[in-house]
Structure formats: C-alpha cells, structure tokens
Simulated scan of single mutants.
Amino acid sequence: MRDVGFFRSWLRAMAASVDREAAWLTELDSPIGDADHGSNLQRGFAAVLAAWEEDPPTAPGDALRSAGRTLISTVGGASGPLYGTLLRRAGKELGEATEVTDSQLREALFAGVTAVAQLGGAAPGEKTMLDALVPAVAALSTSYQAAARAAEEGALATVPMLARKGRASYLGERSIGHQDPGATSSALLFRTLADTAAGAS
C-alpha cells in the first residue's frame, strides 16, 4: 500500500531530478521549442514543494491534485497544463483514500495520461510527451522499473520523428533529429517513480 508519504517522496525526487537536468531539458528545447522547458519545470516543481510546506497533503490523491493545480498556475507554455492535467486527473481517480494499492496507482496514471492525450489532441508517434507516457503506463502492469525503461526508450525514439503537434511542429522537417523535451521530462517522472518504489519496498 502507498500512503501520502510515498507520493511526497516521489514528487520531491522529481523536483530534485528536474533541478539536476534543467539545463539539459532546456538544451533539448532550444532547437525545437522556446528554450524554457527545464527552467519552467524547475520553477513549477519548486512551487509544488513550497505549497506543500504551507498546506501539507493528507492523502495520495490530495498530493497529486495539489501538485497538478500548482503546476498549472506556475508553469508557462504547454507543459504546465499538460503535467497539471496528468497529476490532477490521477489524483481525482485516487479519491480520498489514505492508502492506495499499486493497481490503483496504475489505473490512476492511465487515466491521467488519457486526459493528457485528450487535452493535447495528440497520439504516440507525433513527437510529444505521449511517446514516453503511453508506453510507460502500458508497462506499469509489469513493474515500475519496466515503466521507467519504457518511458526512457520512448523518449529516445522521438529523435527521428517528425513533430506533428506543439511548438516543434512549426519546424517541419527541421524537427527531425532532436529528442523531444516533454518526452524526456516524462521519462524523468517515471524514473523517479520507479526509484521511489524501489526504495520504499
């Protein structure tokens, strides 16, 4: 069973990972985006932790909903609404339970990724964060580590893709050869989830 402490540990680990990788994420975003993905996420996850200091979440769903709201309100560009939707929808799925099973978390994350796809109007293969998120949630039925690997492989697979959605799609053929920053940060989200689960088990 996973309690609110697990979710706080996961998103704290994500915040630390984004801090470490912010320059890289922004470097990936420079040729095909607005060169702000790393700094935007860094600001957003720092705000999540600050909000939790003021008003600590009391349940897993509460932690995800709170984080989602904060990301939407503090992160610019598309990544705030997309990450916010992912976490808020997953949190809504978990409801008010004080502990959740791994199966419930898998279902919640699937619901969150489905909501992201609906919001962005995108599908796998279009060089977006869904290229990491969709294979990750599919692999969750195997293990958290399998999900993290699937997300990382999905992010790498965006390099040869032609962007068909988002800012990168404006570049047409010039988007080919670059790794999608949103898929890359999505892989960080699942890597930190897998590492948190490994440390908690």
Rank of each mutant, 00 (worst) to 15 (best):
V4L: 13
F6T: 10
F7R: 11
R8L: 15
W10T: 04
L11H: 07
L11Y: 08
L11Q: 12
M14H: 13
M14E: 11
S17M: 10
R20V: 07
E21F: 13
A22G: 01
A23G: 00
T26N: 06
E27H: 06
P31L: 08
I32G: 02
I32A: 02
D34I: 00
D36H: 01
D36I: 05
G38N: 00
N40D: 00
N40P: 00
R43K: 03
F45W: 06
F45R: 01
A46W: 06
L49H: 00
L49Q: 01
A51P: 00
A51L: 09
W52D: 02
T58E: 09
T58Q: 06
T58A: 02
A67V: 07
R69W: 05
I72K: 02
S73G: 04
V75G: 04
S79T: 02
P81A: 08
G84W: 00
T85W: 00
L87P: 13
L87F: 06
E93Y: 04
L94T: 01
G95F: 03
D102L: 08
S103H: 08
L105I: 04
R106I: 10
E107K: 08
F110R: 15
A111Y: 05
V116I: 03
A117G: 13
Q118Y: 10
A122L: 07
P124C: 11
T128C: 14
L130T: 15
V134K: 07
A139M: 11
S141A: 10
T142H: 15
T142W: 14
S143D: 08
Y144D: 14
Q145G: 12
R149I: 12
E152G: 07
A155M: 14
V159S: 06
V159D: 09
P160H: 04
L162E: 12
A163K: 03
K165H: 03
G166T: 09
A168Y: 12
S169K: 00
S169W: 08
Y170F: 03
L171A: 04
E173S: 09
R174P: 00
R174V: 01
S175Y: 10
S175P: 06
H178L: 12
H178S: 07
D180P: 02
D180G: 02
T184M: 07
S185P: 04
S185F: 09
S186A: 15
A187V: 10
L188T: 00
R191F: 07
L193M: 13
A194H: 14
G199K: 07
G199R: 08
A200Q: 08
